[in-house]
Design a protein around this nucleic acid. Structure first.
Length: 425
RNA sequence: GGAGAGGUGGCCGAGUGGUUGAAGGCGGCGGUCUUGAAAACCGCUAGGCGUUCACGCGCCUCGAGGGUUCGAAUCCCUCCCUCUCCGCCA
């Protein structure tokens, strides 16, 4: 959420961000509501002050008749306060609703446009030249008996799956590999809840309800299945004041991720690419405002190192304004080369890192205090994927397949998987 | 699931109707002492909102919401959460 006060002080920036993101907002209406809440707050303060004064006057002993008159006046003042309060609450609600429609500000370098207007920043690695007809991960998994899609569909429905044999081990190996890597960088490892309260989802910027929601809700509890541990990691310090010396705070979270994928029918979604459940190691960082851009680059760097260690070619894209999502100030995706995608291989998103500046922190009230400062400040919050297991498996299988039908395991992963190759059985 | 206890400031913890936004402690900040540090001692230290160029002034907040009262952290109701014991269970 944006600061309503920014509507006036950063008006041009807000308008520009909304234009670039192709989001329609009514800034004048929101400003009007904010001015109205301020005016009502002032009125309420004055009414309360009068009431307090009156109460203080009633502390001394009063004659019965005096007491009666005093009580009468007290009741009148109370009603006056209540009337203003009721109106303030209504206007506040409207303002809040209006503010929710405003996305975050936007980094000046973000390319303008929609999903296809990203800027490619760099590439690493060379797509493999197999010299044989490359298989996609679905075919590979079938030949190697690694994934049971039919079983998943029978038990849980379309877009569910069983990982089996080396794929099951691969899930654990990838998680542990990523965790060790992040711990080395100073992250604290977490295994988070897979469910969270709707308010937390909301604070992070996920819409738990509505027809287009990506979120599963639990029928008999006020809980949602998380789509990413960004939610549980980001929510961990809701309503708290961090010490300046605590920052930057780097958390690595392992969780299952659940997504309804409503409205994504027909999009490229073969096999493991777009599924209802997967596991993920997520990075999350809380920083001081002036450090968030450096941290964002750092998170991207970690994502790159992970895929370099996995020996998977990739490219980095600077996601375009229209595809950012409301909380993100800037977002980078790592797209891995997937030889089985499309006719002759294509890049497919495997990780994503966003700098959400103070947009999430404002609603979650995550603050910090500088030494000698009177007031607290909002922290900046950033997230990034270390490993999304299902998509990492796609990239691994497809890039490291060999002519004999086996799949080579990159050196860095061998100690974690306990084998050097996956052989046909 | 059953029974009980409890939710107070960054943290711990007093406080049962009126100068209590809240004792005390810890932590933090500043100072005295010291070559320096520690210890000891002294002082300061909640968050948020409105208003103001600013100093400041005012308002709100003791889990949340409602009620009683001129007046509520304190009494009543509802809800949420946490802890302990029992049951069940990986």
């Amino acid at each position: 959420m944006l600061d309503p006060r920014a509507l006036a002080t950063q008006k041009d920036e807000i308008v520009e961000s909304c234009r670039k993101r192709r989001v329609e907002v009514d800034l004048e209406q929101a400003m009007g509501l904010h001015e109205r809440t301020a005016a009502l707050q002032t009125d309420l303060n004055e009414a309360n002050r009068q009431r307090n004064e009156h109460q203080t006057a009633g502390k001394r002993k009063l004659e019965p008749a005096e007491r009666e008159a005093h009580s009468l006046e007290g009741r009148r003042l109370k009603e006056a306060c209540a009337a203003i309060e009721a109106e303030l609450e209504t206007v506040r609600g409207d303002l809040n609703a209006a503010m929710r429609s405003f996305p975050n500000l936007i980094h000046p370098d973000v390319p303008e446009g929609g999903e296809d207007d990203f800027r490619e920043l760099r590439r690493w690695g060379t797509p493999p030249d197999f010299g044989f007809a490359a298989l996609d991960h679905v075919e590979l998994a079938q030949k190697l008996d690694l994934i049971d899609f039919e079983g998943g569909a029978r038990v849980a429905g379309q877009k569910f799956y069983y990982l089996k044999n080396e794929a099951a081990l691969l899930e654990l190996a990838l998680q542990r590999f990523a965790l060790d890597f992040l711990i080395e960088d100073g992250f604290t490892p977490f295994i988070t809840p897979d469910l969270a309260r709707p308010e937390v989802l909301d604070g992070i910027g996920f819409n738990p309800r509505g027809p287009e929601t990506q979120v599963y809700s639990i029928a008999n509890a006020d809980l949602c299945l998380i789509g990413t541990s960004e939610i549980t990691l980001g929510g961990l310090y809701a309503d708290s004041i961090l010490e300046e010396s605590d920052l930057p705070l780097k958390l690595a979270g392992v969780s299952h991720c659940f997504r309804t994928e409503a409205g994504s029918a027909g999009r490229e979604s073969k096999g493991l690419y777009r599924v209802h459940q997967f596991s993920k190691v997520e990075m999350f960082a809380f920083t001081q405002p002036e450090d968030s851009q450096i941290m964002h680059e750092h998170l991207l760097g970690l994502e790159e190192k992970i895929f370099q260690a996995l020996e998977i070619p990739y490219r980095i894209i600077d996601v375009a304004s229209g595809d950012l999502g409301a909380p993100a100030y800037r977002k980078y995706d790592v797209e891995a080369w997937m030889p089985g995608r499309g006719d002759a291989g294509e890049f497919g998103e495997v990780t994503s890192t966003s700098n959400c500046t103070d947009y999430q922190a404002r609603r979650l009230r995550v603050r910090f205090k500088r030494k000698e400062a009177k007031q607290t400040e909002l922290v900046h919050m950033l997230n990034g994927t270390a490993i999304a297991v299902s998509r990492a498996i796609i990239a691994l299988l497809e890039n490291h397949q060999r002519a004999d039908g086996s799949v080579a395991i990159p050196t860095a992963l061998r100690p974690y998987l306990g084998r050097e190759v996956i052989l046909p059985r």
